[in-house]
Design a protein around this nucleic acid. Sequence first.
DNA 1: CGAAAAGTTGATCTACATCAACGTGCGTGG
DNA 2: CCACGCACGTTGATGTAGATCAACTTTTCG
Lengths: 268, 268
Amino acid sequence: MDKNAPVSRLTSFPDGPLELKLQVFLPLSEAEKSLLADLQRTRVDCRPGVELMREGEPIAKVMIVTEGWAIRHRDLSDGRRQIINFVLPGDFVGVQSLLFAQSDHSVSALTKVKAAHFEPDRIIELFAQFPRLAAALSWCTTREESIIAERVASIGRRSAYERMAHLFLELLYRLRTVKSAPGKSFKLPVTQEVLADVLGLSIVHVNRTLRRLRQEGLIELDGGRIVIPDLAALEKTADFEKHFLHAGPPPRRVERQLEALENGAVLT
Amino acid sequence: MDKNAPVSRLTSFPDGPLELKLQVFLPLSEAEKSLLADLQRTRVDCRPGVELMREGEPIAKVMIVTEGWAIRHRDLSDGRRQIINFVLPGDFVGVQSLLFAQSDHSVSALTKVKAAHFEPDRIIELFAQFPRLAAALSWCTTREESIIAERVASIGRRSAYERMAHLFLELLYRLRTVKSAPGKSFKLPVTQEVLADVLGLSIVHVNRTLRRLRQEGLIELDGGRIVIPDLAALEKTADFEKHFLHAGPPPRRVERQLEALENGAVLT
DNA sequence: CGAAAAGTTGATCTACATCAACGTGCGTGG
DNA sequence: CCACGCACGTTGATGTAGATCAACTTTTCG
């Protein structure tokens, strides 16, 4: 903490990825931001490959990833693996701890991961005292479901080519909202095996599909970075509809109710 | 309403599918049940094929299906369709209305559907006044996500044969919790086309896979009913892990907090 | 009864998997 | 500094699960 920094209040910090993401949904007050800062006080660093959570085991903590990539995955008993979703900066891990006795999937760090963690109980606290944050948190989890639902559609009905294009677009947009994708490119810290396991393909086929996308000029790869030179073109080949990312504020009706809450009103 | 029925209180009713499902997670008090009954007062009937909700449009109401089957589905622009999940008795439709300005998927009735519906605002009310119900509702939505995540794993990594076996098991267990599957069989009111669209397969291949499951004695079909003579055998061929159905109470820790709430305590 | 929807079956095709070999970069230990 | 090993990427040959096409049967239902 830099005591000499010119801040309007001691509590104000530059927004982290979580704050950036939540503010797509609703603006945060200083009080809310400082609660979030407090939730994120305890931090951990994980090396690549570390399991943040394992299928079948109880969930001890809720985590918020602040840097790096992780994956939620299911491992079948014969070794086949399916990645359900990427966990990017600003994403939660283990919010289910409140409701589920055991986890039904594992979460593993793909890169070095920096994360914050806190006791599940604090979410109950948050629901009682910060209803707007509670709404924002629910928005996160519901959005996560939408992303997974779109993945079902992708794997079930799109060709490998379309599917991969769609994934890159999803990642671009998700990373943009947490300011991790400047312009038309982003760092893609994954092996082809990881891509295969998200997309439900074999490694070899991922390699060839990647090459085809490159040859068609739809993507450029260069040392762990991917560039999407023509967004519209890629969206067309993926049949990309951004509905599922819900990158907008809540419906007016709800916005009004949330404003009321902001002004200290308590629901009767 | 039968006024002569011997009831302990006027408010007590036989539990509907929603109540049955929620009580897997936690026991409901009379007050909570009567709130649920009140939420379900306004009812609609839908013919097969009716769209309860359409992708891209705002979500007007929250619905609870009490009878019949529906599907959540994504339709790609060229006509391909992927069914994300079945909506069974006791399931919600449109809980996202609070958080999302538009729906990112459609919901269509597969059979005749009886449903209740209410204003989204009432959920906010519920969160403020009935925290235990709020927890139970969150449990429902999180469980829905788990089911979809398992579907990603199925479509991405299981063969058509395993996948279909897995689906039938999922349905059996889900229907059992709402008392719609007596014993080892249940009514399966779907065409092979519908099966194809959940499983990400072609109709023809569904037909053949179905036949194979029948020939192996793993399932029996007869006029819209499916029988699973040997549950263990089917579970083995599907590599079925029931984790994802979360058919148990919350962790102890949380259970204690919820009990406190039941006794009228208010979180400070 | 007739027409449409659903189911069934065979023939053929193809997107993707599997197998196998080889290239390439890189970190570790001698 | 080299060399070895290992993870990752690339490419060709071949195999196969599942798609597509097409015809026919059975069921459903107005």
